[in-house]
């Protein structure tokens, strides 16, 4: 199988879906050349820097039979569109009694590590998870991002695809032929028996590296990737914890009211899973501060493979 990058895989998803369905069009403040060349400026619109309007226009176009894609580029720029996301996109199908469908893909990059400081290094997906009515994906591999984006485009609801900027250059196997990754289905990325690490996006890669290190010490780590945050595949996560009896959640976002809190609760509030726990769940997240600029500061704030290794040892009471 050929290897391509995460960013290439994502773009392939858009190209293939736009070839398949003429009702798909794309709006962003910076139209991707790869799409413009193939589909022209009418279907691939370079827009004013007006994310609120783009977000709302996608809703109106969707209700008229189109399947818009809006790329906010960085999640940072989605905040000016919060009224349209929270008050409109998330609620409009429900509020009007399910009269119309709103198939929309909103894309946004998340994550830090680029020395871009507080306003351009954010992972606020839990803010969006809190809004009933949206679906949310968060891929960790080139294969998954392509398959999840295809599912998101074909879904008849507003879907937000968060994509970690740290993964953009990550290479991985991606088949040539058409496939999708279902929304709402987690995947065990590495099987293990001693501890479950539920990791999100870039942290999946860090957790896999940590698992490799720990394997050399005789510790067997299972790495679970939820892949979609809403709906969350609680059963796969719980089944893993029932097997290992221990849970770490690794997330590049801060812990407070985060996806990590949701995952920990899904595990502990389930009596069958709770009764299997041999140790308290642990979260390895970013420190709860805006992301600082200086490399020394930024690296201190984020979780990584070293912190995951240390966390596993702590939960297991070793080393």
């Amino acid at each position: 199988m050929r290897e391509i990058t995460f960013a290439q895989a994502a773009m392939e998803a858009l190209v293939e879906e736009m070839e398949r369905d003429p009702k798909i069009f794309h709006m962003s403040t910076d139209a991707p050349d790869a799409l413009v060349e193939k589909f022209g400026e009418s279907r691939v619109r370079a827009t004013p820097i007006a994310e609120s309007a783009l977000t709302g226009m996608a809703i109106g176009a969707a209700s008229s039979g189109f399947r818009p894609i809006v790329d906010w580029r960085q999640v940072t720029f989605a905040f000016v569109a919060m009224d349209q996301i929270v008050n409109q996109a998330a609620k409009i199908h429900y509020m009007f009694g399910g009269q119309a469908q709103f198939p929309i893909l909103y894309r946004a990059s998340v994550g830090g590590g680029g020395r871009s400081a507080a306003q351009h290094s954010q992972s606020p997906y839990s803010m969006f998870m809190n809004m009933a009515g949206l679906k949310i994906t968060l891929a960790s591999t080139p294969y998954d991002v392509k398959g999840l984006l295809k599912s998101a485009i074909r879904d008849n609801n507003p879907v937000i695809a968060f994509e970690s900027n740290r993964l953009a250059g990550l290479k991985g196997d991606v088949p040539q032929e058409d496939y999708t990754v279902p929304i709402g289905k987690a995947e065990v990325k590495r099987e293990g028996t001693d501890i479950t690490v539920v990791a999100l996006a870039w942290q999946v890669q860090e957790a896999l590296a940590a698992a490799e290190t720990l394997a050399a010490e005789g510790v067997s780590v299972e790495v679970v990737d939820p892949r979609t945050l809403i709906p969350m595949d609680s059963e796969t996560i719980r089944a893993s914890v029932r097997k290992t009896g221990r849970l770490i959640v690794a997330d590049e976002a801060g812990p407070t009211a985060g996806a990590s809190a949701e995952i920990a609760t899904l595990v502990t509030e389930d009596p069958d899973t709770f009764s299997c726990l041999k140790a308290p769940p642990k979260r390895i997240c970013a420190l709860q501060v805006p992301i600082p600029y200086s490399p020394v500061l930024e690296d201190h704030v984020f979780p990584d493979r070293t912190k995951i290794v240390a966390g596993v040892r702590e939960v297991l009471g070793i080393g």
Partner: peptide, 22 residues
């Protein structure tokens, strides 16, 4: 739709206009 957010509907219906044009 009637819309409870002041100015909330303006961009949505502009998207309907874009759909008509497309």
């Amino acid at each position: 739709g009637a819309n409870g957010i002041v100015a909330g509907g303006i961009s949505i219906v502009t998207g309907a206009g874009l759909a008509a044009q497309l």
